[in-house]
């Protein structure tokens, strides 16, 4: 009888332990690393439509052709403005490195100056072409640059999400913290709140549409709302192609000046 009771206890404990293992949540760092490491394809190209809304809701539209390629330790991005007329032909190129702490290389080409100019990576805190996205918001921030804590799990827009708070290790960083809702199913962030250096809520990024293309989850429409300035920027992607074998040579001075033909 004694042995039987002991057997039941061991069984119950084993099941409880197994359930515990099955339900154990990953750490905040593990979640953000999984988001960073998720398959994104070797290259991607498409048309980006950026709509800027001012505080009165008046909109301005920019159309940009975008190419992204991943080549070993370097991620390369090229953007060429198609419209409006006064910025047509302006191009921006960014090379981002996997190494911790290594600054990005960035260049801009302004048709009026007819010259490619290297620009400061410290300008990553600057807003990209008048939008509510900083240059840094548009890149993949390495998880090692922040301390991450899993705060809770929450259902948002029908998706089960981890909610992760990230506090930058560098106190000079433009945000004091960010809170990200990560889809458990897709391993992509679907919402992020940004807090300014004083700890006040500054912006919210909402992912409006995610599509699976070539077995890869792609953010097709995102909107950044600046709650302090009451301005918004919506970015939507069209004609997205993935893994088409983009040659590395297109991420060059020549392409910035002449465009991709």
């Amino acid at each position: 009888m004694k042995h039987r009771r002991l057997g039941v206890l061991v069984w119950v404990l084993t099941i409880a332990l197994m359930e515990g293992i099955a339900n154990a949540e990953p750490s905040g760092r593990e979640i953000m690393q999984a988001v960073y490491d998720r398959p994104q394809g070797n290259d991607m190209s498409g048309t980006l439509t950026m709509t800027l809304f001012d505080s009165n809701g008046k909109e301005r539209v920019r159309v940009i052709k975008q190419w992204i390629g991943r080549y070993g330790r370097v991620d390369k991005k090229l953007m060429i403005f198609q419209s409006p007329a006064d910025v047509r032909g302006t191009s921006f190129m960014n090379w981002s490195y996997k190494e911790e702490g290594k600054e990005d290389d960035q260049w801009i080409y302004l048709p009026a100056l007819k010259r490619v100019k290297r620009i400061s990576a410290e300008g990553k805190g600057d807003y990209f072409m008048g939008s509510d996205f900083t240059y840094d918001d548009l890149g993949d921030r390495h998880p090692s640059e922040d301390n991450h804590t899993l705060v809770r799990t929450e259902r948002i827009n029908g998706e089960e999400c981890w909610v992760v708070e990230s506090i930058p290790k560098d106190p000079r960083y433009m945000y004091s913290r960010t809170v990200t809702w990560v889809s458990k199913e897709k391993r992509v962030g679907v919402k992020r709140d940004f807090f300014d250096r004083r700890g006040t809520h500054l912006k919210t990024l909402n992912v409006r549409s995610v599509e699976k293309i070539e077995d890869i989850w792609v953010l097709m429409e995102v909107e950044m709302h600046n709650v302090q300035k009451k301005t918004s920027t919506r970015m939507s992607f069209q004609n997205v192609s993935i893994n088409r074998g983009l040659p590395e040579s297109i991420f060059s001075e020549r392409t910035m000046v002449r465009g991709v033909e």
Partner: peptide
């Protein structure tokens, strides 16, 4: 010459 040195571009 132009190069990225920390937060600045030296040229």
């Amino acid at each position: 010459f132009a190069g990225t040195f920390g937060p600045a571009i030296a040229k």
